Amino acid sequence: MNRTPLAAAAAAVLALALSACSTGTSGPASGASDAGASSGTDTSAFPVTITHAYGDTVVSKPPTRVATLGWSDQDFALALGVAPVGAVKVTWGGNAKLSTPWYDAKLASLGAAEPTRYDDADGAPLEEIAKLAPDLILATNSGVTKEEYAKLSKIAPVVAYPGAAWGTPWQTSLEMVSKALGREKQAPAVLKATEDSIKAAATKYPQTRDKTFIFGAMSPTDSSKIDYYTPLDNRPRLLVDLGMKNAPVVESLTKGSTEFYQTISAEQASTLESDVFITYTESDADMAKFRKDPLLGQVPALKTGGYVAATNKTDSLGMSAPSPLSIPWAMEKFVPTVAAALDRAAPSHPNQ
């Protein structure tokens, strides 16, 4: 994955980067890979045309060998019952298999084979993808460039992102992927199950309702700045889905912006008013350092205790790459840390 969460941006300064299976359509536990009505694919839907940032892609027939790029397309395909033959290595927050626990659990439930994993740190791995002989490449939430798109399109039809790179809402990815796979009939149930997990978390943690947040990153080796995600990023979007609100200061600073994150001088830390401030950290010691810093420590939520020091990369990845598989994980693992931060801050804000 070559768009590591912003913590890895802060961790760039921390020494981290900001940065031939035959699975196909899954059938019964035997691992059947043929696509068709029996496996849930609507063959009558084809050909389908999908519009994205680089034009229109026509998928002429039901795909049976799907390769994915970006952070989450493999999850969308799998959630719809299609196991990719190839997917990007999950190097930030991933497990020993360079995968995620939510992907592995779903794959096991389908009885499907593991995908070939490739590294996209230096861009789309064209040769490795070509070796898999895919008949569809999904990249709805990726950073595929126009040049890469042109080259990938010579291998197989490519469904790229509809707007900004890395900025596709998970609901839009689900819509695009289900159409490309001929699985639009399954999409509503997947959508509902995902939304239900968000509603359940909102009900379990009512203290999050209407609270303001800033999702950012600080660096223990560079206290001169604070990075933060804009409302166009999927992390803030997911918290908004939960019922929270972007802090007014973030709304103001990012008005008209097309970027997924921005930076503010640490000298302006006191202006970052919010009920909760979330930052990626490598350890709890980092947060202690931030709170003691004469500039960073002026972030209001760091004073009230309304902060989340996100040290668990896997749980954080559930927020960074929201999908029908990762969102329930994030609701169970990450949201409680936000609720706990709000609970800590509550005594300092009796009117909340």
Rank of each mutant, 00 (worst) to 15 (best):
Ser320Pro: 00
Leu14Val: 14
Thr140Cys: 07
Ala165Val: 04
Trp92Gln: 13
Ser153Cys: 05
Thr221Lys: 01
His52Leu: 07
Leu238Met: 15
Ser316Asp: 10
Thr254Phe: 00
Phe260Val: 08
Leu242Ile: 12
Gly163Leu: 02
Asp122His: 11
Lys151Asp: 15
Ser316Cys: 07
Leu132Lys: 06
Lys179Val: 08
Glu127Cys: 00
Leu191Trp: 09
Glu259His: 03
Leu317Lys: 03
Ala7Asn: 12
Ala340Thr: 11
Thr25Asn: 14
Leu342Lys: 02
Pro328Ala: 12
Glu127Thr: 13
Ala7Asp: 13
Glu195Gln: 15
Thr91Asn: 14
Glu273Arg: 10
Thr194Asn: 13
Ala266His: 01
Asp233Thr: 14
Pro206Lys: 11
Pro169Cys: 08
Met1Val: 08
Thr64Pro: 00
Ile129Asp: 02
Pro294Thr: 01
Gly93Asp: 07
Ile155Met: 11
Leu232Trp: 02
Thr25Gln: 14
Met331Asp: 11
Met331Cys: 12
Ala87Pro: 06
Leu152Ala: 08
Pro220Asn: 01
Phe277Pro: 06
Ala35Trp: 05
Pro28Thr: 15
Val144Trp: 06
Pro28Gly: 15
Pro63Ala: 11
Tyr54Val: 10
Tyr280Pro: 04
Gly111Pro: 03
Gly216Ala: 02
Ala301Leu: 01
Leu110His: 09
Gly86Cys: 12
Asp119Ala: 08
Thr100Ile: 05
Ala269Val: 05
Pro347Trp: 07
Val276Thr: 12
Ser22Leu: 12
Ala200Val: 09
Ala83Pro: 03
Trp170Leu: 04
Lys179Arg: 13
Ala180Phe: 03
Phe277Leu: 05
Phe213Ala: 04
Asn234Met: 13
Leu6Cys: 05
Gly306Val: 02
Leu78Cys: 06
Thr281Asn: 15
Leu80Thr: 00
Glu127Asp: 13
Val58Tyr: 00
Val82Gln: 07
Leu138Tyr: 06
Thr172Leu: 03
Ala10Gln: 10
Leu239Pro: 03
Lys211Ser: 05
Ser283His: 09
Arg209Tyr: 05
Met1Ile: 05
Pro322Asp: 06
Val299Tyr: 00
Ala164Val: 05
Ser153Ala: 13
Asp286Thr: 06
Ala124Ser: 09
Pro236Ala: 09
Ala11Ser: 13
Ile50Ser: 04
Lys204Ile: 04
Pro134Lys: 09
Ile214Cys: 01
Asp135Ser: 04
Val276Tyr: 02
Leu78Glu: 10
Gly111Leu: 07
Pro248Lys: 12
Glu184Met: 11
Pro294Lys: 09
Asp233Gln: 10
Ala156Asn: 05
Thr4Ser: 06
Ser219Trp: 02
Val299Ile: 15
Pro115Asp: 10
Asp34Arg: 15
Glu175Gln: 14
